[in-house]
Deep mutational scan, measured.
Amino acid sequence: MEVRTIKVFTTVDNINLHTQVVDMSMTYGQQFGPTYLDGADVTKIKPHNSHEGKTFYVLPNDDTLRVEAFEYYHTTDPSFLGRYMSALNHTKKWKYPQVNGLTSIKWADNNCYLATALLTLQQIELKFNPPALQDAYYRARAGEAANFCALILAYCNKTVGELGDVRETMSYLFQHANLDSCKRVLNVVCKTCGQQQTTLKGVEAVMYMGTLSYEQFKKGVQIPCTCGKQATKYLVQQESPFVMMSAPPAQYELKHGTFTCASEYTGNYQCGHYKHITSKETLYCIDGALLTKSSEYKGPITDVFYKENSYTTTIK
């Protein structure tokens, strides 16, 4: 009895394709271990004539594949690729409408935090270190965002349907971005203890939790000093293409032309909904596939993004 075979390709990165001759009487799992086709788990399936010449994702289970996976995804987590594939199996079914010149995501599976993050990423200057993220990001900007969303979920250790947080998501993504040249110098002034300067680099240099107003941050924000008295913390120097200011959701007025974009969060910790506000020729609110415009805006804002380049204080 002759062994019926077909020729397929296996890959971990969709760049390096490895030619395989597979036995049609055995499952993919018996031949390769966990195997995925377009995100779908085909591990328990036997090869079919229609699979001839198709590319299958496999887990990096030998040295060659491990090197290829690390170079593309910059992670050695053995569960990463499987999590990416199972997320992709959902995100490829989502709709990605162009809204006001940006790629958004039609609401499904509690994905409003991903839509808000995706919209924000198209408006701030950011370059990702893992080629996987950078490639998928370019495709997302062009309207094909399924891979990018699935990668975000995998890097953030999230599953489809789980509630997510924009600030946490951005923080994970910033860790995989090139923020080497970003720098922030802060000064804390206390009447009792004097003053202390701190220099922050990388992710810490672009994120701040405690106030939404970048102007206020430049002037000074009140913080408790270690001595128990009130101290003032203010920005001395900022070198970065953008800054992200966050605070627990509270009524906040966004003035046209003073910011790049913002995240609105309605609801409580267990259950809520994100919308995205962007400042173009007027203010726009993007909620999944829905767009509304207004000249002014007041609502429960939790993150505001500002364009920056270089700032030095005039406070002496």
Rank of each mutant, 00 (worst) to 15 (best):
Q31P: 00
F32Y: 09
Q230S: 11
Q197Y: 08
L59W: 15
G228D: 01
L17A: 15
E215K: 08
Q222L: 13
N147Q: 12
Y28S: 02
Y73D: 07
H276W: 12
D109G: 01
A247M: 08
P47C: 07
E308H: 08
T266L: 06
P131F: 01
A145C: 06
Y57S: 08
G39H: 08
V236P: 03
E2N: 12
S246H: 05
G143C: 04
T75N: 09
Q251V: 08
I124K: 02
K183V: 11
P97Y: 07
P241N: 07
F148C: 04
Y155N: 02
K95G: 09
T232D: 03
L235V: 10
V206G: 00
L102Q: 01
L88A: 00
E168P: 01
S240P: 01
F259R: 02
E52V: 12
R184N: 00
L163R: 14
G299D: 01
T258C: 06
S104L: 03
P300V: 13
S50A: 14
T292Y: 06
I315C: 13
F9T: 09
T292F: 08
C227T: 05
V203Q: 07
K229P: 07
L88N: 03
Y73Q: 01
S310T: 14
Y172M: 15
D303G: 00
V203I: 08
L186S: 06
K298A: 11
L163C: 13
Y73S: 06
G101C: 06
S171D: 04
C271P: 01
I152M: 11
C261F: 04
T199Y: 09
L65C: 08
L200I: 10
Y84F: 13
A40F: 13
A150G: 07
L59P: 04
V42H: 13
P300M: 14
Q98R: 14
G210R: 02
V166S: 00
T64M: 13
M24K: 11
L200Y: 15
L163I: 06
P241I: 01
T10P: 07
Y274Q: 00
V203H: 13
T211R: 01
L118F: 09
T10N: 14
E239L: 08
G161D: 01
N49F: 13
P47W: 05
Y265G: 04
P131A: 04
H176I: 05
M170R: 01
M244Y: 01
P224Y: 10
Y306D: 06
F174R: 07
Y28E: 10
D62Q: 09
N61P: 12
A150N: 00
E162D: 12
P34S: 10
K92Y: 09
G164W: 05
G202S: 02
M170P: 06
K92D: 05
T169H: 00
F70C: 07
Q222P: 14
G257M: 00
T169Y: 00
N100C: 15
T192G: 09
